[in-house]
Design a protein around this nucleic acid. Structure first.
Lengths: 127, 127
DNA sequence: GGTTATAATATCGTTAGACGATATCATAAA
DNA sequence: TTTATGATATCGTCTAACGATATTATAACC
């Protein structure tokens, strides 16, 4: 997905925020939550997990609420909640674009008659 | 999004396939299509665009159907269509997970009474 | 107390994707 | 033939993913 530093979240990042929004928790707990919620579809290794937690703390999407020994508990900030909401919207837009495409809707800025690229005779990718 | 080589498409990749499924076209046309369909939300530079086209050809998601001078026309293969469909499903899963989370649905494998992490007293991220 | 086990976090190194900037090439127009 | 234009190709840098491994703090046991 996105590569311009946190303009659009990756799937891993999205689920980390989702976990911490459910309830403040530590990294391991978040990772377990993600596996359960996605029924195993998404599984973060420690490297990805802690890289994301570190990054999110830097940019203020999450903050530490408790440190017991080595265990750090994180909560999502308002900024993080906004980023999560924006990501939901981005995903929805992708899907709604896909649906419009299935319907072969003409593009914006087309007058419905310009020799443009709508109503092609179906993809027909031979191979 | 995804980083394990094409296991899950990036947003850019997704829209490139969407463009070529509408109708076989060249890189520039695909990039123009994407800008229109997303109303400017997604815009690929030439580097991203041709990197993706090259990669997709390598893995067999698209194939060249015509070469006129420098202009190369691409079409989506069945493999590419499958990848696109899988991506749509992935996006749908992300959103449905998000919706389940909004409803605070308990996780799979929880008996509704285990001292687990559901029904927390709402996130309350103070900052 | 000292040793082992365990839970949790941290870091390294490699690979993949994003993208601005720029270069190259082919055709058409002047 | 020069110039313009449309289109593709490549360079370099940055960010993210992730397996493997190391580190550290608490708990459990003898």
């Amino acid at each position: 997905m996105p590569k311009k530093a946190l303009d659009g979240l990756t799937e891993s990042m999205f689920y980390v925020l989702m976990a911490l929004m459910r309830q403040p928790m530590c990294g391991i707990e978040a990772s377990e939550f993600i596996q359960k919620r996605t029924e195993g579809r998404v599984a973060l290794g420690p490297a990805t997990l802690y890289t994301i937690l570190g990054k999110f703390q830097q940019v203020g999407y999450i903050r530490e609420t408790e440190v017991v020994g080595r265990k750090r508990t994180y909560a999502v900030t308002e900024l993080g909640q906004a980023a999560y909401a924006a990501e939901v919207e981005r995903l929805e837009r992708c899907l709604s674009d896909a649906r419009r495409e299935e319907r072969r809707e003409p593009l914006e800025g087309e007058d419905g008659d310009g020799a443009q690229m709508h109503l092609a005779p179906a993809p027909v990718p031979v191979l």
